[in-house]
Design a protein around this nucleic acid. Sequence first.
DNA 1: CGTCTATTTGAATGTACTCAAAAGCGGTGG
DNA 2: CCACCGCTTTTGAGTACATTCAAATAGACG
Lengths: 196, 196
Amino acid sequence: MGKVKIHEPASAIFEGLSFTREEIILIESKFERVTAKKGERLIDFNTIVDKQYFIVSGCLRSFHIDSNGREHTIQFGIEDWWISDYTAFFSAGKALMSVEVIQDAELFEITKKDRDHLYKHIPKIEVYVRGKLETAFASFQKRILSYLSLNASARYLNFVKSYPQIEQSVKNYHIASYLGITTESLSRIRKEIAQA
Amino acid sequence: MGKVKIHEPASAIFEGLSFTREEIILIESKFERVTAKKGERLIDFNTIVDKQYFIVSGCLRSFHIDSNGREHTIQFGIEDWWISDYTAFFSAGKALMSVEVIQDAELFEITKKDRDHLYKHIPKIEVYVRGKLETAFASFQKRILSYLSLNASARYLNFVKSYPQIEQSVKNYHIASYLGITTESLSRIRKEIAQA
DNA sequence: CGTCTATTTGAATGTACTCAAAAGCGGTGG
DNA sequence: CCACCGCTTTTGAGTACATTCAAATAGACG
């Protein structure tokens, strides 16, 4: 389990920030506690996205199905991470991808409207979120670099090293779809690594 | 040329925001006007990054040189865009990549410290920047999806469609290094497309 | 025209994919 | 406890796509 527990006040999401009693109540009123079972979809392709999820426990992924029917995993989400279809959430447009539960999960859910309300009334949350966004931005940049400069085997090793907890929580075919390779290729890569 | 001119007040960078006279003076004092010639490097690999650039005119790119000596273009920057090594800039760490001028450029330069000062004294700038960051975040997400789901030819067509202005401003070998393919492959792809 | 840089072409190679089939694993019910 | 089922991973053979290295053109500019 992560640092934040589902029974704590939602304000615990913003780790390191301290709040007044009124602020804590406001934050509490904007987040909804949600539990979701393996296989459930929180966001569906082509629907309007106005929700974002903070993961207390469990594992989720966002993925896209391309014109050939192949799934591509954009992001995995585990405890203390946020997940949504950000492209759609930020622009209030329709989802390019779906978000599904891989392992039973406990979540804090918030709508865009409520998020904006929190930003407005508690500006330090906006500052905090900008910092998180910057970190996520930088890690996306690194991921792009890994597609540009590494072969499948090196990308896999890099993934395992960077996200050991995720590697343990998901199926190999999910990892393959995150790395941009087929299940068969990942299997052969793992075999090669094991032999060395 | 873009909407913002180098002779305008720096506050023009934040398109759509209106400022008081005092705010305009503060913003002006934090940005420095810089001109840079083709070939110049604004950020060098392995050096501390504390500057970010708003591009008024010209063209730049950020790129990484991998362990085999190959260059990979992370981002192109043209007028009205920001460029830096964000990974390093956000974390005040050393550059993973370099930023070089592809076409003579006019820029507004700002340090991290001055940026933070502006955020603190003019909060609406921080809100504005968060919005920009979200847009950039979403476009990175789309780019990752393109590496996962498209072959080289489709990625190229996608690039040309999405960034026609950039395609005109840069060499093919830069485009190849952005798409994650070799110059030779891009040449063959362009030939195929031309024939069809 | 000559030089430097950028692009194209060719042939051989390599990496990852496709499709099909087999093996492994985990849970359920008899 | 074992047999079966569904799901996941592995293996194999053939193929496709992109790379490598080397050489030939094409363009830009003085």
